[in-house]
Computed example of a mutant assay.
Amino acid sequence: MKDLEKYGVFSKEVRPALFDYLPIDWSTVFGNNNGIIVEIGFGSGEYLQSYAIKHPEKNFVGFEVSITSMKKAHKRVESLENVRLVITDARFGLREFFGPKSVEKVIMNFPIPWDKKSHERRRVIVPEFFETLSNVLVDGGTFELATDVEWYAKQTMETAKEMGFEVVEFLENPDREIKTRYEQKWIKYGRNIYSLVIRKVKHIEIERLIGGRHEMPHARSVVAEEKLPLLHNKVFKEGKKVVVVKGVYKSTGNDAYLIKVISSDGEFQQHYYLVAYPEEPGSKEWIIKLDSASNPYRTPAVKWSVSVLADFLSSEEEQGK
């Protein structure tokens, strides 16, 4: 496992931002070519643990956004060689970390339905999600949803059909092979459970934000240092890319600056830092690059943040060339 740390694998946690190349070569991560099953929102990990134990011939990748859930699940699956965990937005992770036709099955257990109109953008199950499924699932691969919200299950089924998927089954109160802890509790109290299974029928190509070498962007610029404080609260926009500077901090030890940035590629948002410093002491030419400690995914907006800030900071003489 220590040998894999250089690739961004730490025990059961995979950190794709540390990988040199995306999508991930999961055969290297797991050390085999077994089929992959993905669970979106693994919670405390009891379902993922049970499924992986029952099917040692498969590899399992779980997505979560909660660090607390990651810690709980990590303890559950620590001894299982066929499980890996990732902290990130699953809509982003499924699209960016898996290549075409690389996943056998995707599972979602009791996601938050986000029923309010203002919360729609938070839903995982939207047309763009099915486009991703149509790419990353193997031919005939499946997506399974379990929920206690009837309208959500039916809406998912209708959206899936509109996106070209085949409905394998839609059941009320199914006898599922593995049940989550909350599912067992709800069944005990007579709450209805709905299960949907759909199958990929056609393959489509999709556009990914990241692909190929996952390089660290940087820029060189003749900087007018007096412009650095002017970056605070500055907003830059280009197409779907948005960059907002939230803070500019000068080092007390040298001429370096730390710049706090929020960037968005559509709905996917990241918080990170850039550093700006003279290439040599007293030099007018500066380097602007990502701070390695924050290490965001090098999406188009992240790469653009480096170049657009370098352009903004350029001196009048440099801009006039």
Rank of each mutant, 00 (worst) to 15 (best):
M1S: 09
K2M: 07
L4D: 00
L4V: 00
K6G: 05
Y7K: 11
V9Y: 01
F10K: 09
K12L: 02
F19N: 11
D20Q: 15
I24L: 14
F30T: 00
N34Y: 08
G35V: 03
F42I: 02
G43C: 07
Y47V: 10
A52Y: 01
A52M: 03
K54V: 02
P56N: 02
V61P: 01
F63H: 05
V65M: 10
I67V: 10
S69T: 12
K75F: 11
T88H: 11
F97E: 03
F98H: 11
K105I: 10
V106P: 03
V106S: 04
F110Q: 07
K116D: 01
S118K: 15
E120K: 09
E120M: 06
V124W: 03
P127R: 15
F130C: 05
L133Y: 05
V136E: 00
T159P: 01
E162Y: 13
G164M: 09
G164P: 08
E166Y: 10
V168K: 13
E172L: 08
N173T: 12
E177H: 11
E177N: 13
I178A: 06
R181I: 10
S195P: 00
V197N: 00
R199E: 01
H203G: 08
E205W: 08
E207T: 12
G211R: 12
G211V: 09
G211T: 04
G212T: 06
R213G: 04
E215C: 07
M216G: 07
A219V: 07
R220A: 08
A224K: 04
L230H: 10
L231G: 03
H232E: 13
N233G: 02
N233F: 08
N233P: 00
V235H: 15
K237P: 01
G239C: 06
V242I: 12
K246S: 05
S251Y: 07
G253K: 14
L258A: 13
K260S: 11
V261K: 02
D265T: 08
G266C: 09
Q269E: 15
V275G: 09
E280P: 04
P281T: 05
G282Q: 12
K284A: 09
K284W: 04
W286Q: 06
I288S: 01
I288V: 10
S294D: 06
P296F: 10
R298A: 04
P300H: 03
V306I: 11
L313M: 12
S314H: 13
E317K: 15
E318R: 15
K321I: 15
